[in-house]
Deep mutational scan, measured.
Amino acid sequence: MTVLPKDIPGDSLKVTVGTANGKPGDTVTVPVTFADVAKMKNVGTCNFYLGYDASLLEVVSVDAGPIVKNAAVNFSSSASNGTISFLFLDNTITDELITADGVFANIKFKLKSVTAKTTTPVTFKDGGAFGDGTMSKIASVTKTNGSVTIDP
């Protein structure tokens, strides 16, 4: 049996954390987006972790974005102690894959008090994996961190 590389060099799934701005007490939304989904033969499963400074940001909610089908079954998240974990699994293993680019999740943060303008990162942590529509590992994932700026 011969195994051929399935990824064209330079191609990767792009996962990007967005940015937001606000004043202390505001609730802002930071999107997590996927790009080049079709090039990577869709997404059938993924789990990953984001870190944030809990002294500056309070997670209000984490909701599935419009590219997630049947989110009540296929999407899960949790947030505590400065870490947000995400889990997606197409429970049907074929019919509810992520097949389009767009917003995977929206994180709502309540901004805490600061004395001066502060930009705090929302960054990928170690761990996690992504699988394509056949549940094979997506070897190349380009992750881009985001941030939230609090301006009193």
Rank of each mutant, 00 (worst) to 15 (best):
C46L: 13
F88G: 01
G10C: 12
L4N: 14
K112I: 04
I150G: 15
E58S: 10
G10H: 12
I67T: 10
A100F: 04
A72H: 14
G22H: 13
S80W: 15
I98V: 04
V114K: 14
T144P: 06
Y52F: 14
V17C: 14
K125N: 02
D7E: 14
T123G: 07
S85R: 01
V15F: 01
V62F: 06
K6R: 08
D36N: 14
G146D: 06
T144L: 07
I67D: 12
D11I: 12
S113H: 07
K23C: 14
Y49E: 02
T33S: 10
D7P: 11
A116Y: 04
V37P: 12
F104T: 03
L50G: 04
K69G: 08
V15S: 08
Y49V: 03
I8A: 08
F124S: 04
P31W: 12
F48E: 04
E96F: 02
K125A: 01
I93V: 05
V103T: 05
S12L: 12
S77R: 15
G127H: 04
F75C: 05
G128A: 02
V62L: 09
N74E: 00
A129T: 02
A35P: 06
F109Q: 03
V73F: 06
D53S: 11
P24W: 14
F104Y: 14
V114G: 08
D26C: 13
T144Y: 07
A20R: 11
G25W: 09
T115W: 05
A38C: 14
N106W: 01
V60W: 12
K6I: 14
N91Y: 15
I93L: 09
T123D: 06
V32C: 09
L89T: 00
S61I: 12
T19P: 11
M1T: 08
K117Y: 03
M40E: 08
M40S: 10
N91E: 15
D151F: 15
P152T: 15
S113I: 07
S140E: 01
S61Y: 13
G44L: 14
A35H: 13
C46G: 05
D26T: 12
G44M: 14
P5S: 07
V30T: 10
T27D: 09
A38I: 13
K137T: 02
V73C: 12
D151L: 15
L13R: 08
N91C: 15
G146V: 05
A71C: 11
K39I: 09
L13N: 08
A35R: 13
T16M: 12
L50I: 08
F75T: 02
P31N: 07
A38P: 10
N74Y: 03
S147E: 08
D132C: 04
D90N: 03
V17Y: 07
L57Y: 10
F124T: 02
N91L: 04
V68H: 10
T144N: 05
K117Q: 05
F34D: 06
I107K: 00
K14S: 13
G146E: 01
S140V: 14
K125M: 00
T99R: 06
A105Q: 00
K23E: 10
G44P: 01
L56Q: 10
V3C: 13
L4F: 13
D7W: 12
D26N: 11
S12N: 14
V32P: 01
I107H: 00
T33I: 11
T33K: 13
T45D: 00
S136C: 15
K108I: 04
K110T: 03
V17I: 10
A79E: 15
G10E: 13
T115R: 06
S136K: 03
T83Y: 15
N47D: 03
M1V: 13
K39P: 10
N81M: 15
N106V: 06
F86N: 05
A35V: 12
A105G: 07
G18R: 10
D132M: 00
F109N: 02
V62R: 07
N91F: 15
Y52L: 11
L4K: 10
V32Y: 06
N21A: 14
G65K: 08
N145I: 04
S136G: 06
L111D: 00
T27Y: 11
K117W: 01
V17K: 01
F48Q: 02
P152R: 15
T149R: 14
P24G: 09
G25H: 14
A105I: 03
V43K: 02
N42C: 08
F88T: 00
T92C: 01
K14R: 11
T149N: 14
T83N: 15
P66I: 11
K117D: 05
K125D: 02
P31C: 11
V59S: 09
F34S: 05
T45R: 00
D126G: 15
T118Q: 05
K14H: 14
G127N: 01
N47S: 02
D101P: 05
P121I: 05
S140L: 08
G127T: 02
V3G: 12
L97D: 01
T149G: 15
V17A: 11
V114M: 09
K39W: 14
V148D: 01
M135S: 01
I84S: 03
K6Q: 11
I93Q: 02
V43L: 07
F34Y: 09
S113E: 03
M135Y: 15
V3Q: 14
K6S: 13
G44Y: 00
L97I: 06
N81A: 15
F75E: 01
D95V: 03
A54S: 11
D26V: 11
D26P: 10
S76P: 01
T2P: 10
V60I: 09
N70V: 10
K112N: 03
P152N: 07
K125T: 02
A79V: 15
V32E: 06
V148E: 04
V28W: 07
N47Y: 01
P121G: 07
G25K: 10
T83G: 15
G51C: 08
A54N: 12
T92D: 00
A100G: 09
T27Q: 10
T119P: 08
L57H: 08
D95F: 01
T120G: 06
V59T: 08
K112D: 02
F124E: 02
K69H: 12
P121F: 03
A54G: 13
K137R: 04
V17Q: 11
D132V: 03
T27L: 10
A38H: 11
K69N: 12
S147Y: 04
G133Q: 05
D53Q: 13
D101A: 06
V148Y: 05
V122H: 05
L89A: 00
T115H: 07
L89K: 01
K39E: 14
A35F: 13
T118M: 07
T142G: 03
P9L: 11
L50W: 12
M40I: 11
V122C: 06
G10D: 07
A139G: 07
I107Q: 00
V17F: 14
K112R: 05
V37S: 12
S147D: 06
N70A: 08
T149K: 14
A139F: 14
D26W: 09
L50V: 08
P66D: 13
P152D: 04
F88Q: 00
V37F: 09
K125P: 01
T115V: 07
S12R: 12
S12P: 11
G131F: 00
K143T: 02
K14Q: 13
V59R: 09
G18P: 10
A72Q: 14
V103C: 06
G133C: 07
F109T: 02
T27V: 10
F86R: 00
K14P: 11
K108T: 08
G82I: 15
G10V: 10
A64R: 06
K112H: 04
Y52G: 09
K143D: 00
F48C: 08
T119D: 05
K125G: 01
D95A: 06
V73R: 03
A105P: 01
S136L: 04
K23D: 12
I98T: 15
T115I: 14
V28A: 13
V43F: 07
V17H: 11
L87I: 06
N21I: 12
S61L: 11
N21Q: 12
I107M: 11
N47P: 00
K143S: 02
G44Q: 01
G146P: 00
N42T: 11
V141C: 00
S12M: 08
V30M: 14
G22Q: 10
V59I: 14
G51D: 14
D132A: 05
L4Y: 14
K110G: 02
F104N: 01
D151T: 15
M135I: 14
G82K: 15
F34P: 02
K125R: 09
T120I: 11
S140Q: 07
D90A: 03
G44F: 02
T45V: 13
A38W: 08
V122E: 06
K108H: 03
K14E: 14
V43W: 02
T27K: 09
A38R: 13
P66E: 12
V30F: 12
V122P: 04
T142D: 02
S12Q: 08
D26K: 09
V148H: 00
G128K: 00
N91P: 02
D53C: 06
F75V: 03
V28M: 09
K23N: 11
T45C: 07
D63W: 11
I138D: 00
S12F: 09
F48W: 07
D7H: 13
L4I: 08
